[in-house]
Each structure stands twice: as C-alpha cells, then as structure tokens.
Simulated assay, not measured.
Amino acid sequence: MREATMSDPLPRPGRRRPIDPDILVERHRLALMSMTSTEALDRFAARLGIDTRSLARRFVTALSERAGIDYEQMLRVELAREGVDSVLADRARIGPRLLMWSAATTDMFTVCGADRRPAWRDTFTPEDLGSGRVSTVAALKAIELAGHWIAEWGAQAGTLRLNLATNQGIDLAGLHRFAGGVSVVVDVAAVPLDNPAAQQCLHREPVSSRYLDLTDLLHPPGAPA
C-alpha cells in the first residue's frame, strides 16, 4: 500500500486488539468494492488500524481474494494517469458529470443511466464475445455511450462514475485507456447489490440509446462521487 498509510497515527498503547485483515475485508466488502481509488482504500485501512507493512500486505491480499479488488492494478492505473491525463482532467472538470451502471449476461449487456432506467440493452457481437470478458465489454459500452453524449452536449470532456455489477475479471487499465480516447475521465466501482443494470439483465428486449437525453445520465446531487 502507499507509504502515506503508514504515517497515520497508531492506536493508543494498551488498547490494541489483534487485527485480522481477512475478517475486516469480509465485514466491509461492499463498502470497499464501491471505492474507486487506492487513496480511499488507504484511508479506510488506516481507520481500521492497518498500520504496519505486514498488515498492509495481508490487507491487499484479502482485498483480492475476498472482494475481487486488484489494488496493485488500481495503483498502476493511477500512476499511469498522473503523467498523461492532466489536460483531459482539466477539461473534464468543467464538463458534464455522468452516472451509469453496467452489467452483462453471457450474450447481452445492459447499461442504465443515472435515473436507473435502461439506457442501452443489446446482444453482444461475435467480436465482443470473442474477448471472453463480457463484464469488461459491458463497461466499455457504457463508456462509449458516455463519450458520445458528452460530445453531443458540446463539451470537450466529462466525468463518469461507472458502477459495475461485478469487478471479477475487469480490465481496469483497458477501461481507462478507452475512456481517455473518448474524452471521459472514468471512476469505476463495483456495486453488486441493488444494481439496476443487473436487474434489467433479466429482460431480453433491446433498448436503443438513440432516444436518450443527456439529462438521463447526469450525476444527481448527493449520489456517490
């Protein structure tokens, strides 16, 4: 974990209890999955008393094994973005902020807008299925849609909070590269419970994105950033 975590105040002597990162991650799994940065994970770990290198290593392992969170991949993506995304980030900061949800079955994807209604649902193409990563492809469809509507709105760039139905097998680096190519700064989280896109995957009727309005995708005040 980042060195900053190790500088947080230690618990007062005499009041420390044994810490088991596996139990902590299991207990807070859903909250951890909703976090979109290593900084947020580090702050959370510090509050839980994970303040040594040994505990940090066990925490990172528990994140992967119990919550499907690849901390090292997240960190690599963040470090890569720091050097190349400054112009995009500045443009996105004054552009529209969108909120979307994505999910996939073995042959279909569903994308929902901020209003939790289906914005796009269709079958995968043979090329999509050939990748073997349907959840990643569903996320790419959401980013593609966000980029299209940001451009239609007339902005140079925008931001997208993307809530996935699962984080298993997700190519985070690929999502961020694709997002940069369509002028989107994307924050990716996993929200497996009460995910409208996952619920809408129970339906099979295609939903065309051509009738969307940007207001259907705008990030509502008070929703997770």
Rank of each mutant, 00 (worst) to 15 (best):
L98M: 09
L99Q: 15
G49S: 10
R57F: 09
R121T: 08
D128F: 03
A89L: 05
T123P: 02
R210P: 03
G147E: 07
A223R: 06
A104S: 14
D85N: 12
T125Y: 05
A89N: 15
H219Y: 05
P96T: 07
S209H: 11
E127G: 00
D194W: 03
P196A: 08
W120G: 01
A62L: 02
R177S: 13
P11C: 06
G132W: 09
R47P: 09
Q199C: 05
V87M: 08
L63C: 06
S131F: 15
P126D: 06
G83V: 10
S183Y: 07
T166D: 07
Y71S: 00
E144F: 07
L164N: 02
T166V: 09
I94M: 01
L79H: 11
A4G: 14
H219T: 03
C112G: 04
P21A: 05
T159G: 09
V207R: 00
M35V: 08
F59T: 02
R121K: 12
V186N: 07
A67K: 04
G14S: 08
E72G: 07
L145S: 01
R133H: 15
T105D: 04
D213F: 12
S64G: 10
M108N: 11
S37R: 11
T106E: 09
D85R: 13
G95H: 03
R93M: 08
A46E: 00
M100H: 06
M33I: 11
H203D: 06
L63Y: 11
S183P: 15
A4Q: 11
R93D: 12
D85M: 04
E65S: 08
V134N: 13
A155T: 03
A46P: 11
R121P: 11
G14H: 01
T5R: 03
M35H: 14
D128W: 01
F178M: 10
A138F: 03
R81D: 08
L98V: 01
G180N: 06
F44V: 07
V111R: 08
L202H: 10
G49P: 00
V207F: 12
W120C: 04
R93C: 09
A4T: 07
F109Y: 14
V87W: 15
V182P: 05
V184W: 00
R76K: 09
R66Q: 15
P221R: 13
P18K: 10
T52Y: 09
S209T: 13
R121D: 04
A197G: 11
T125K: 08
S135Y: 14
D213E: 14
L164I: 08
D51I: 12
V111Q: 06
V87P: 05
I94A: 12
P21I: 12
L172K: 07
A4R: 11
L218H: 06
G68F: 03
Q156V: 02
M108Y: 04
R58D: 07
G169W: 01
E144R: 12
H176K: 14
S86W: 04
A46M: 03
V25L: 02
P21G: 13
D42F: 01
E26R: 14
I94W: 12
G158C: 02
I150Q: 01
Q168H: 01
V186I: 10
C201F: 03
T123H: 11
Q73F: 02
M100L: 14
G222Y: 13
P11M: 10
A165M: 04
V137C: 00
A155S: 02
R17Y: 12
L129C: 08
A89C: 15
D70P: 05
I150L: 15
L48Q: 15
R12I: 14
S183V: 12
